[in-house]
Simulated scan of single mutants.
Amino acid sequence: MCGRYFTLQAPEIHRLFYGYAEVPNFPARYNIAPTQPVPIVISERGRRHFRLVRWGLWPSWLKDPKGFPLVINARVETIQEKPTFRGALRHRRCVFLADGFYEWRREGTGKTATKTPFMIRRADGAPMALAGLWENWLGADGSEIDTAAIVTTGANGMMAAVHDRMPAILSPDEIEPWLDTRGVEPGPAAALCRPCPDDWLTLDPVSSRVNDARNDGPDLIVPVAKPKGTPELPETPAADRPRSSDEDAQGALF
């Protein structure tokens, strides 16, 4: 799953990388959490645009969001079938503006379980294009809100020792077909959401301060000493890999 991420590079770097028309000014954010406003890129009539949305997707057919599960992630394996995502996959695909994300390695069970946070970034320092789906929700009272979820896929070799899921990270040449909802059908679009190569990423343990979404500062991305037994390039046997609770609808993060 993907429950926290960060966007640190200057707005102009993201604007040049994605090529949207707007000139937004947004601050660095080190610990972005669900329900918060987040920046995305969409495409309308062949042109890219910057937009702020709420992280936590509400499908357009939803009459009342009260009691609806918090949908922060969408599993690529089911987005073509599930009603929550079917329409967005066909008509409203987006990219989350990110520079990296956090994931927690769970070890043990019950009260003795430990959760070690890791920071994952692109090795080349480029913006990390996270595939997403967005929706425009209209309330009966005329209220309107744009919401979005991150698409997830199975973990690559590096991530597998930390978690069995990861966000779908698009290469620069995959961004256009993902955003092109007029020219690229849902099936080929979904096929773009696959585990990225190991050498795209770096993985470092960080402070447990990232566990609290109220903490948001540069200290969160400072690597700490690797926990004993953490390999440089994890290749954990499948039977021993930490398992996730990644679902399409989630009420709890960790």
Rank of each mutant, 00 (worst) to 15 (best):
K63L: 04
A33N: 15
G56R: 02
I32C: 12
I42E: 09
H49F: 13
V41D: 04
R45G: 10
G67Q: 12
G46L: 07
P34L: 11
W61Y: 15
R51C: 14
L70I: 11
T35M: 14
A74D: 05
I79N: 02
W58A: 07
V53M: 03
L62C: 04
R47N: 13
T78G: 09
V38F: 00
Q80N: 11
G56P: 04
W55T: 03
L62V: 08
R45E: 14
A74H: 05
W55A: 03
P34V: 12
N31C: 12
G46E: 08
V76Q: 04
W61R: 05
E44Q: 14
A74K: 01
I40Q: 00
S60V: 13
W61D: 09
G67T: 11
F50R: 07
E81F: 08
E77C: 02
P39I: 06
S43F: 07
E81D: 13
D64G: 03
L52C: 06
P69Y: 03
L70C: 14
E77S: 02
A33K: 14
E44H: 13
I72P: 00
A74F: 05
V71E: 00
R47A: 15
F50L: 08
L57A: 02
G46I: 11
R54I: 01
E44K: 14
P69K: 09
I42N: 03
G56K: 01
P37S: 13
N31D: 07
S60M: 09
Q36L: 12
F50M: 09
S60N: 12
E44W: 07
N73K: 03
V41W: 05
R54H: 02
I72Q: 02
V38E: 01
T78N: 13
W61G: 07
F50E: 06
R45P: 01
T35A: 11
R47H: 15
E77Q: 05
I72E: 01
T78F: 02
I79S: 03
S43V: 12
H49G: 13
I32S: 10
